[in-house]
Amino acid sequence: MLRFISGKFLFMLLSMFLLITATFFLMNAIPGSPLQGEKATSEAVQKNLEAYYGLDKPLIVQYGKYLENLLHGDLGISMKMKFRSVDKMIAESFGPSLRLGITALITSVVVGCILGILAAMHHRKLLDNLAMTIAVIGLAIPSIVLAPTMQYFLGTKLGWFNVAGLDGPLDYVLPTIALASGPIAFIARLLRSTMIEVLGSDFIKTAKSKGLSGYVIVVKHAFRNSMLPVVTYLGYLTAGIITGSVVVENIFAIPGIGKHFVTSIIDRDYPLIMGITIFYAAILMLTRFLADVAYVLVDPRMRSGGKVGK
């Protein structure tokens, strides 16, 4: 098991390195210098600027420097917002994004699991149909539609929520729903189908014949054994929430990383685009790795080989 985990870890580092390399060379493949503004600058000023940003050195040296800086957590300087370092900008805007992201993550898992369990326990009955209808709708309406629609009806028309910002706890409601609706639907469907299969298996019959209560059977036996696909999904869930947050933060004017990301794309602020891409990728790969580790810990078949775990 230790071998499996260390293998995954090395693989994560390799992917990360490849992404950083690809990002660097892609950004350098863009024709024209990012320092060429609309105003003509004198030769000397141009040279000075290039030296300041280190653009006068050969590409491979720039690449080495970039990697070295990355190790110190230095992501360079934003080109549009002069004298602001990218890592500071990310650090400052990470708070709101993280709080919203965690809220959405927990909501997705909890609500998704509850819907999935209810649907599986009441297979082919009213509750099942209801839960699955919610799930299909949740899958069909993307965040770029759901967020502005809720903002319009619940924010403007009914006035129940603020349409922008992330100041009070009530401000979390709409962005969280916008982020979590898709993942809730996905988890509910995933858990339902696995759980229906598990509920039909022999060990559930054994548990039932031992006289265990329905609650114990569902929570301790069926749910635990249906969780594996959900655990695997957690890595992709994070990806979905990050993607969603880019949209949702813009629509609800939340000062998070997603908002910076869109601005950086519109401004073609390359260091900022690179910095945020690498930051996002790092979070994603880390969660995927943690999901792999969690999978090993949850799956009893994987546990038997190693000494770590229980």
Partner: peptide, 18 residues
Amino acid sequence: EILYSIPYLLVVILLLVV
């Protein structure tokens, strides 16, 4: 696997920026 491990949307966004 390596291709798959790089987040899909980030790659797409990077390529489109370029």
